[in-house]
Design a protein around this nucleic acid. Sequence first.
DNA 1: TATATAGTGTTTTTT
DNA 2: ACACTATATA
Length: 801
Amino acid sequence: MDREQIISKLNKEQQEAVLASEGPVLILAGAGSGKTRVLVHRIAYLIDVCGVAPYNILAITFTNKAAEEMRQRVDDMIGFGAGEIWVMTFHACCVRILRRHAEEIGFTRYFSIYDRDDQESVMKDILKRRKIDPKVISHKAVLNAISSAKDELITPEKYARLNKEWGQVKIADLYAEYQDKLKENNAMDFDDLISRTVALFEERPDILELYRRKFQYISVDEYQDTNTAQFRLVKLLADEHRNLCVVGDDDQSIYKFRGANIRNILNFEEYFPDAKVVKLERNYRSTQNILNAANEVIRHNRGRKSKRLWTDVGDGEKIRFKRYETGYAEAEAVAREIAQAVGRRERHYKDYAVLYRTNAQSRLFEEKCLLLNVPYKLVGGVNFYSRREIKDVLAYLKTIDNAVDDVASTRIINVPKRGIGATTITKIATYAADGGISFFDAAAAAKDIPGLSSATAKKVAVFTDFIAGLRRKSGELKVSDLIGEILNETGYLEALQAEGTEEAEDRLDNLDELRNKAVQYEENADSPSLSGFLEEVALIADIDTVDDNDDRVLLMTLHAAKGLEFPVVYMTGMEEGIFPSAMSINSSDSDEEVEEERRLCYVGITRAREQLTMTMAYERMMRGEMHPMMPSRFIHEMPREVVDLGKGSQASRTKPDLGNAGFGRSMREAITAKPYAPKPGNGAFTGAYGRSDEDMNSGYSSAYSRSGADRNGGAYSSPYKSPYSKPAQNKSSAPASASSGRIGSGELGYEVGDKVRHVKFGVGTVREIRNMGRDHQVTVDFPSWGVKKLLAGFAKLVREE
DNA sequence: TATATAGTGTTTTTT
DNA sequence: ACACTATATA
């Protein structure tokens, strides 16, 4: 293609961005402004017009899905040679470089990649061995501190130099040990992938030179989400030729908690004073109403590069704001609306995305979709690859592939059960530590380990022999066959099949799925290998597996929705404390954190093409308790005229002074100003505000079918009683039932205050009897043994006359 | 050694 | 509400 062909279908700013091929470029791309289009055209321009070799191009994206999409579009545009371009995520790019130079930094090319789970087992182990009370220093807190340090390229030594407080000194120490442990295991965590690549480049100018020469033209997508380490990496690679094009939107920076440094984008022009800056404000995705809402909300943030999205497609529908009694009602109403629209053939399921702030909210939507037969895909939450059965199989594969990965081998040495218990595992681990060998090698030498009985050593040998056998065969066996062999030979499948529970069925399905993925990998990879498969699996995010052709509603967090778009979007749980999260509101630098939440809101709003609905619940179940909720401040921040409150909405009914006209653009006065406070006790829905019929219906029906009665075995009877008042709990120490009168009388033959005899403890006094459902827990005070809690069915207590 | 249960803490977002 | 840990018991 020639220059004219490439730029002919782009707007003026986009053309400018595409044509600025040399030198540093900062593209401030508002949501939906066609930045992927620009990036793709830019690459085409570099190759077809500037004569750059595809081999010399590096395009970094945020997710594998984005990489795939970009690769596809580049393929379509330039055809031959596109395969040579590196289009991938930071992490994938670093792994590729690190595998090649692993030996030079003390690893082998088979190094494992540890996910959060693996990191946790390493850290727990360290804390345990150091006898540190996890209540004083939690493994999670340590890992978070380490992760933040790595994002900032702070080594353990530097961390120790920088931090002198007691807790921090401890962390520095643990950090150092953690790094040693990972190295021993020939493993790296996600953060290491970046920081070790940076370290490699800084220590070995010769290697850096290699990649500088290779990557002549670099582009970075979602630049606002890069952290210090990633920025340093890019800077190292681009410093010489300075052909660096970054694309980002400071308003969409939502990963500060992961170390994203918003200054990277705000200060780009300081690092590169000669940078060309292009602003893309024309939006090709949403209606003007949606854009107005987004613009107005984000305007409440300070310190941003000002920009204002616009479109010429017209106003479109207003944004709908709907309120429901509870989270259950909210979820049901959303699912029902979708089902109805699809039923009327107005929409496909895949036109919809249901977004929420936290993964915990997903369960309700999942339940209601199931109930109403709405096909859905849940993105995130429990990642496919972090399910137990999947991790088990992967641990087998890792043990075969990376013999020194102790986390992997300890995980599966007794899975399925081989009669190797915690004591044995500790003995093997100690032996390994003393001899400076890996856990697996120690296990292979079980018969030499003092203190292990020959019977135990034999059990261990069964395991190590099995792995050794597979290791021999791993060269010629395909990954999928290897998986099959593991599942069959260990009896893993058999054990699951024997269980016969629904959960076991799910697990079997997941294992099938894993085998399918392996087959897919074998078909698609250039040169399939066990390490290659493990790497792909480690770096895949849930969102990467979303299939655009699948006709399903997508359920996901607002974070996961970044970079995507949908005709219809529901933003749910629009409540203070949920969104913005209580965490951000109560934080010590609340202003900044709420601004990040606001950006998240902006991201959510701008996902919608045609219709956007925001929903909230008056009451929400959190940590097992019902809480009254107030509308999110972000609702107030939207301009009044783009929002539809729905007919018969409470605002116009109970606040006649606000009516339908005559007040300012702010939503603040137009909607509920006070939290909905159900009267305790009577529980009827007589809050201060009237409700639309729709709200009424969904509120009640859902509450009845879901909240009270069903889950407590019909414990609550009257429809006039609040479905939300807590029914008496079975385990409560109050009388188990009104009719039985005295506690535990009848079946047990004794009651509180009675003297009872126990085979071992002798005679004691019954202090308490708790109904545990099937059995009773009896608290007995034995004069010579103290107070014991016994199960009536077990203890065989006999009343003493 | 394996299992069942009670007690405890916990939650934002993720490559 | 849920998951994880510590404890008790066969």
